[in-house]
Design a protein around this nucleic acid. Structure first.
Length: 564
RNA sequence: UGGGGGAUCGUCUAGCGGUAGGACGCCGGCCUUUGGAGCCGGCUACCUAGGUUCGAUUCCUAGUCCCCCAGCCA
């Protein structure tokens, strides 16, 4: 990574100040703590960039990758692997510190025993429903559970038997003894342990007792010597509990919890629950569907880790909830791809063009620039012949104002080739549909041949019919037709999915240099956008994903024009 | 309604008592064999009302609006 350290923000300031003051012995240890119950998305990327970036930019800093795997019913190794892949792909290194909360189960148990011995935790026999009633409401205080007065010995006995598997799920919990009347509901004797007779993907059936987040998280942080425990805003209310646990359990270290606002993006979904719903209901092809904002989806779509990191650096870190416009993400991927991708010509919706005055048996190889942004990318040869295909959008029989492209009697330049003039239009007699164009070319206008003063208003891309390769192209549009924040809660959110989020065009033609393309390769299709070869692409069936379109000035003009 | 947070251009974000800055976006121009890229110029903001102060986006007070919390999820 050669880019500069991330832009400053309030968390960086806190960390820098702590580091300068020698707090925590001058160490900075952060952590990215996903639960392995789903795939990472760009919201996680923000957290990853923050946590790993902070560690990276602080001398001696380190960031742990810790799996918060305290709930055996939702987690599995597939997710663990996917998360590692994604963090690595994004360009970050946990330096051997890949850790698991499940590795702390025994020590966590010891901490809870200590709490019981101090009279600060008790085994409760209330059912879940009773517990809810006893908890009170936002405005009314809760009531003490009858179990709250059990003796230390009794609690210890119960807790041991819970661990031994003597009780069924839901019959007992271990609760912190704090304050049932606290205005902060998280402090009304939160559950520390629950019974789950379920196999954990790492600890198997060793445990039937699992620590809750509010207990496992602060202590895991403390055990790892985390100095700055960065999480999202919804945990602000939990901070007093976090501190209570660390303090009362007499943890070896006191991490500091700091909260920031999670990322939201317009026209997409950033909730793990909803993403899973899309995958499970098969509304998308999988976690790596290029329409999703998952890391895997963005990657398959053609996003680069550099662009995602640049985006994360630029959106900033603050406490106010924000919805970032998708255009900002698109800006960063365009900027990155503009500099690095080779240009090629591809016609998505072909319209046949016959050059009446070009000899039938002739063809030639024209030189094309691979990347005008990068001279070192060199040039390539593109075949040219009498019959070509151009984009349907590049011809209008009755051109509107400001339409500079081809029309009857008009001239345009074929990129890297000649200036042509449209002299005839052939239509299907039945449908009236334009089937082919007759044009003449001007042999004196060959690209680069002379700096003749003849100007044309447009240059369009093309492929040679005899040489072009067939391809499928997948265009992606926003997943949603609106922002979910605006959708009433009682509405089924899936009704706001964009029915046209995926457009498959199967009759595209691409220049022959793409015949040997390999999955994951990125290109700019001139005048259209950035594309990458899909993982499903084979030498027999080329498939390209559109990462993002190019900025389209004409589309904007056309949209602004009055309907004709 | 109890508690915890947050309000600055259309959207993100900076500001730390002294000219409200940047980015995206939008508008206009230049340039161009990509209506791409690049370049130049422009656009619009401190939630409200009081107070402190020579001076307030910043400090204080009172409101308003938005978000989060009543899982044995994280």
């Amino acid at each position: 990574m050669s880019e500069q350290a991330g832009a400053s923000n309030f968390i960086r300031e806190i960390v820098a100040a702590d580091h300068a003051a020698g707090k925590h012995g001058g160490r900075v240890v952060t952590r990215f703590p996903p639960e392995p119950n789903g795939y990472l998305h760009i919201g996680h990327a923000k957290s990853i960039c923050l946590n790993f970036g902070l560690a990276h930019d602080t001398p001696g800093g380190i960031c742990h990758l810790r799996f918060d795997d305290t709930n055996p019913t939702t987690e599995n190794p597939e997710y663990v692997q996917a998360i590692q892949d994604d963090v690595q792909w994004l360009g970050f290194d946990w330096h051997e510190k890949m850790l698991f909360a499940s590795d702390y189960f025994e020590r966590l148990y010891e901490f809870s025993v200590r709490l019981i011995q101090k009279g600060l935790a008790y085994v409760d026999t209330l059912t879940a429903e009773e517990m809810r009633t006893y908890r009170g409401t936002l405005t009314e205080p809760g009531k003490n559970s009858p179990s709250r007065t059990r003796s230390v010995e009794e609690n210890l006995g119960f807790f041991r038997r819970m661990r031994a598997g003597e009780f069924a799920d839901g019959t007992h919990t271990l609760r912190a003894k704090i304050d049932m009347a606290s205005p902060n509901i998280n402090l009304r004797d939160p559950v520390l342990y629950r019974i789950r007779h379920a196999a954990h993907y790492r600890t198997g059936n060793i445990w039937c007792l699992y620590p809750a987040y509010d207990f496992a998280h602060p202590l895991s942080d403390a055990l790892e010597g985390i100095t700055h425990s960065i999480c999202t805003l919804e945990f602000e209310d939990h901070r007093p509990l976090y501190e209570w646990v660390v303090e009362q359990a007499e943890a070896p270290h006191r991490p500091q919890q700091i909260e920031f606002a999670r990322l939201n993006l317009t026209y997409t979904i950033m909730s793990k629950r909803k993403l899973r719903e899309l995958v499970e209901k098969k509304l998308v092809s999988g976690w790596d569907d290029p329409r999703l904002p998952t890391i895997k989806g963005l990657r398959r779509r053609g996003y680069t880790p550099e662009a995602i990191r640049a985006f994360c650096d630029h959106i900033g870190v603050a406490k106010r909830e924000a919805i970032v416009e998708m255009q900002l993400l698109e800006y960063f991927i365009r900027e990155d791809l503009n500099k690095r991708t080779p240009r090629v010509m591809a016609v998505l919706r072909p319209l046949k063009v016959i050059l009446d005055n070009y000899p039938e048996d002739q063809s030639e190889e024209l030189e094309a620039v691979n990347n005008p942004e990068d001279p070192s990318a060199g040039t390539r040869k593109v075949p040219f012949s009498r019959i070509l295909y151009i984009e349907q959008d590049d011809f209008r029989e009755d051109p509107p104002k400001q339409f500079f492209r081809l029309a009857p009697g008009r001239e345009v330049r074929l990129r890297y080739a000649y200036i042509i003039k449209c002299v005839g239009v052939t239509k299907d007699l039945q449908t009236g549909e334009i089937t082919e164009l007759h044009c003449t070319y001007d042999p004196t206008t060959k690209s680069g041949a002379s700096q003749e003063q003849r100007k044309v208003k447009a240059t369009i891309h093309w492929v040679s019919a005899a040489h072009a390769v067939k391809a499928e192209v997948r265009l992606y549009n926003p997943l949603l037709v609106t922002d979910l924040a605006k959708v009433p809660l009682d509405h089924d959110w899936t009704t706001y999915l964009n029915p046209n989020s995926l457009e498959r065009i199967t009759s595209c033609l691409v220049e022959p240099s793409l015949r040997q393309t390999v999955p994951g390769t990125r290109y700019q299709f001139e005048r259209l956008g950035y594309f990458c070869t899909d993982q499903d692409s084979t030498s027999g069936t080329l498939i390209f994903n559109r990462t993002v379109s190019l900025k389209d000035a004409w589309a904007k003009i056309e949209k602004a024009q009055p309907a004709r």
